[in-house]
Design a protein around this nucleic acid. Structure first.
Length: 577
DNA sequence: GCCGTTTTCGGCCCGACTGTTTTCAGTCG
C-alpha cells in the first residue's frame, strides 16, 4: 500500500480544486473556502492524512463535512472526484492563462468559451491576429499588453522570491538613506520583510515627510535603485539592481499607524482583523477605522493604537499570519530576541569546511557577547574532503581544550556535527562521543530515503544517548530543496520523550526547523536550540535569521535552550538528566 | 463551503486600478 500523501501534496490538490471551481464559476466564497483550507493543511503540524483517518480532521478551522469527504476520496481512491470531472472540462493551459496580469479566471473563461483559447500558445496567436478585441470586455490595449507578458514568460512560472537576508540587506540600506533625507520624518519597512518571512517578492516602505514629493523623488536617486517612477507626490515605485520591486508610500503623520499596519499584512491577518472589527461595528482600512455608529473615521498615528481601538492586544509583526493571534484570549508572548542568546552551539572551523580557526571563531563569538560556543566540525563520513576522522577529532578535542584554557571571557566546548547514517547511528563510536561536551546529529546523505525509513532513521538518532540535538531537522533549502520525506510529528514526539533538542538552523537559506514546526516542537515540550551553523566568523551573524524564525514560531526565551548560561544549559542535555 | 458573544441561514474585508465602458466587472494587493 502506497504511503499517505504529505500535507504539502494534499494542500496542492485542494489549491488546484479551488482554481478549477473558480474557472467553473463557483461563488467566490466557496473558492475562498478551498484556498483557506489548503493553507490550513499546508501549515498544519500534524498529518492531515492521519487526522482524516482518525475522523478528526473537521476539528481544524475551515474544514467541514464536505472537505472531509473529499479528503477521504483522495486517501482511499487516490483522487478527488470533483477534480477529475473538472480537469476533463477545463484544459490545464487555462490555469496557466489565469496567471497572466489582467487575466483572471472570469476573463480567461470567457476567452475559452467564445474563442476556444485553452493555452498560452493559442492566446499568443489570437492576440497576434487581433482576434481578442472581438470579445466583450476585451480591447486593443489588452491585446497589446498580452504579447510582452507572454514574451517575458509570465504565466509559465511563478515569480521567484528573494531570500529575506538579501531583501533586508538592500531594504535596510534604502530605509537608512531615506531617513537621512532632510524631508523625511519617519521611515519604516513594512510588508512581508517586516514579518520576517523566508523570502519576499517586494519591499514596502511607509514614511511621513515634511515634503512628501521631495522624499518620493529622492527614492529614484538612491544608489540602491536602478529605476523608479513617481505616480504622485505620495507614492514612489522603484526597482533594485537585482530586480526587487520597492514601493514607497508617504502618508500624513496622523495616519501612519493605519498605513503601516495595512502594508505589514499578512493578507490573512488583515482579513481576519477586519472580520473581527466588523463584528464590533468597525471597518478597518489603510485610511482609518470607520465607526458604524458615529459615522466617523478614526485615524491612528501608531500601530499600537490600531489594535487598541479594536479592543485587541498588540500583535508583533512576526505573528501576523492568522495563526491564532486574533483569537479571543490571545496573550502576546514575550518573544525571544537576539540579545537573549548566550551561546552558539553549531559552527565549523578549518578542521572541516570552515574558513577560520577555533581561536578566530571564539574571539568573534566573544565580540558578539556570547558566553559559550561549541565547535562542531563535520564527522568521519562527511566526504567532500572535509571529514574529521576519529584520530583528527581526538586532536581537535586537545586543541579546543588548549584554546579554551588560554582565552578569557568565553567558554569553548568540544563538539561535533556527526552524520546520522542510514541506520540512524552516528558515525563515531560511543566512547569517542562520550568525551565531547556536545553532539549535534545531522542528516547529510541519502535524502531520497522513503518517509517511513527516514522517520525511523531520525527517531533512532534521537534515541541515541550521546546525541544532544538534531541539526537542520528537515533538510530543506528555501526555494531550492524540499524537506526530505519525514513524519515530523513522530520526530517531535521522540525529541520530547528523550529530551533531545531540535535546532533552528539560522543559515538564511535553511531556517530549519521552520516557524510552524518550531512552534509545534515547543508546544510539545521540546527545547529548541538556535544555531548559526557558521562556516566562518562573519557568518555568526546569521543567528539573526534563526531568531526571526523563532519569533515567528511564538517562542519565548524559556523555550529556547541557548538563552541560558552554560551551567544551566549543560544540565538540560539529556546526558545530564 | 464554512460558521455563530447578532445568525443553524445568510452572511462571509477593503479599496485602488484598469480597460472598457455610459455605470462597472474583474483583477490585484
Amino acid at each position: 500500500m502506497p504511503a499517505d500523501p504529505s500535507n504539502l501534496e494534499i494542500a496542492a490538490q485542494f489549491d488546484e480544486l479551488a482554481d478549477l471551481y473558480e474557472l467553473d464559476g463557483a461563488v467566490v466564497h466557496r473558492v475562498l473556502a478551498y484556498r483557506t483550507a489548503a493553507k490550513t493543511m499546508r501549515d498544519s503540524t500534524v498529518s492531515i492524512a492521519g487526522l482524516t483517518r482518525q475522523g478528526r480532521v473537521t476539528s481544524l478551522p475551515g474544514i467541514g463535512k464536505t472537505l472531509e469527504e473529499k479528503l477521504v476520496q483522495l486517501l482511499d481512491g487516490g483522487a478527488i472526484n470533483a477534480s477529475q470531472k473538472l480537469r476533463a472540462k477545463y484544459p490545464p493551459g487555462l490555469l496557466d492563462m489565469t496567471r497572466l496580469p489582467g487575466l483572471g479566471p472570469k476573463r480567461a473563461r470567457r476567452l475559452f468559451d467564445e474563442l476556444g483559447i485553452e493555452s498560452l500558445e493559442m492566446l499568443r496567436a489570437a492576440a497576434d491576429g487581433q482576434k481578442l478585441r472581438d470579445v466583450k470586455g476585451f480591447g486593443p490595449k489588452f491585446e497589446a499588453s498580452v504579447l510582452p507578458s507572454l514574451a517575458a514568460g509570465v504565466g509559465d512560472r511563478p515569480a521567484q522570491r528573494v531570500l529575506l537576508h538579501r531583501a533586508l540587506d538592500v531594504g535596510e540600506r534604502i530605509v537608512a538613506a531615506l531617513r537621512a533625507h532632510p524631508a523625511s520624518e519617519r521611515v519604516e519597512l513594512a510588508g512581508s520583510a517586516r514579518r520576517g518571512v523566508d523570502a519576499v517578492k517586494d519591499l514596502d516602505i511607509i514614511a511621513t515627510a515634511s515634503d512628501p514629493g521631495a522624499l518620493v523623488r529622492a527614492l529614484a536617486d538612491l544608489d540602491e535603485i536602478e529605476a523608479a517612477s513617481a505616480p504622485n507626490d505620495n507614492a514612489g515605485r522603484g526597482r533594485t539592481h537585482t530586480g526587487l520591486p520597492v514601493d514607497l508610500r508617504v502618508v500624513s503623520p496622523e495616519n501612519f499607524g493605519n498605513l503601516l499596519q495595512h502594508f505589514t499584512g499578512s493578507a490573512a491577518h488583515n482579513v481576519a482583523l477586519r472580520e473581527t472589527a466588523v463584528r464590533r461595528g468597525l471597518h478597518v482600512s489603510e485610511y482609518g477605522i470607520l465607526d458604524d455608529e458615529t459615522g466617523e473615521t478614526l485615524c491612528c498615528a501608531t500601530e499600537e493604537e490600531v489594535y487598541e481601538r479594536l479592543g485587541l492586544p498588540f500583535v508583533e509583526p512576526e505573528l501576523r499570519e492568522n495563526r491564532g493571534e486574533l483569537k479571543p484570549g490571545f496573550v502576546p508572548p514575550r518573544l525571544v530576541t537576539l540579545a537573549d542568546i548566550r551561546g552558539d552551539l553549531h559552527m565549523h572551523t578549518v578542521a572541516s569546511d570552515g574558513r577560520n580557526t577555533i581561536e578566530e571563531m571564539a574571539l568573534a563569538a566573544r565580540d558578539r557577547g556570547y558566553e559559550y560556543i561549541a565547535i562542531t566540525d563535520h564527522s568521519a563520513t562527511h566526504g567532500f574532503g572535509d571529514h574529521v576522522t576519529p584520530d583528527d577529532l581526538e586532536r581537535q578535542i586537545e586543541r579546543i581544550a588548549e584554546v579554551n584554557a588560554r582565552l578569557e571571557g568565553i567558554q569553548i566546548l568540544a563538539g561535533t556535527e556527526t552524520n546520522i547514517l542510514p541506520s540512524g547511528s552516528p558515525d563515531y563510536e560511543d566512547d569517542l562521543l562520550a568525551r565531547l561536551d556536545w553532539v549535534v546529529g545531522s542528516i547529510h546523505t541519502a535524502f531520497g530515503t522513503p518517509r517511513e525509513e527516514m522517520t525511523k532513521r531520525m527517531v533512532t538518532a534521537i534515541e541515541h544517548p550521546w546525541i544532544d540535538a538534531i541539526g537542520h531537522p528537515t533538510g530543506r533549502k528555501i526555494q531550492r530543496r524540499q524537506p526530505y520525506a519525514l513524519d515530523i510529528d513522530a520526530v517531535i514526539e521522540a525529541a520530547a520523550r528523550t529530551g533531545t533538542m531540535l535546532e533552528i538552523n539560522s543559515a538564511p537559506d535553511r531556517r530549519d526547523l521552520d516557524d510552524v514546526h518550531a512552534r509545534a516542537a515547543a508546544e510539545a515540550g521540546v527545547l529548541v536550540l538556535i544555531d548559526s551553523d557558521a562556516h566562518g566568523r562573519a557568518r555568526l551573524e546569521h543567528m539573526r535569521w534563526g531568531v526571526t524564525t523563532a519569533r515567528r514560531a511564538w517562542l519565548t526565551p524559556e523555550q529556547v535552550a541557548n538563552t541560558r548560561p552554560w551551567p544551566q544549559f549543560a544540565a538540560l542535555r539529556k546526558r545530564a538528566c
